[in-house]
């Protein structure tokens, strides 16, 4: 038995909303990763190829 207080049983509707929120958060974080990557490449510009071989 857990020593932590248990959350209330969720209704179908609450589960649906929580899942929808989790999906939205996942999409948001994924979009943020892509945005950071693209912006980094744009900031580097031509220098992206400028590295010692």
């Amino acid at each position: 038995m857990s020593i932590y207080p248990q959350p209330p049983d969720l209704t179908e509707e609450e589960l649906r909303r929580r899942n929808a929120r989790s999906r939205a958060l996942g999409l948001f974080l994924g979009a943020l990763v892509i945005l950071f990557f693209i912006v980094t490449i744009a900031k580097l510009g031509g220098n992206v190829m400028n590295r010692p071989i």
Binding site: P7, P8, L10, E14, R17, R18, A20, R21, A24, L25
Partner: peptide, 10 residues
């Protein structure tokens, strides 16, 4: 009566 939980959607 129920404990409040996070309810908001995106």
């Amino acid at each position: 009566e129920r404990p409040t939980i996070a309810f908001g959607t995106a």
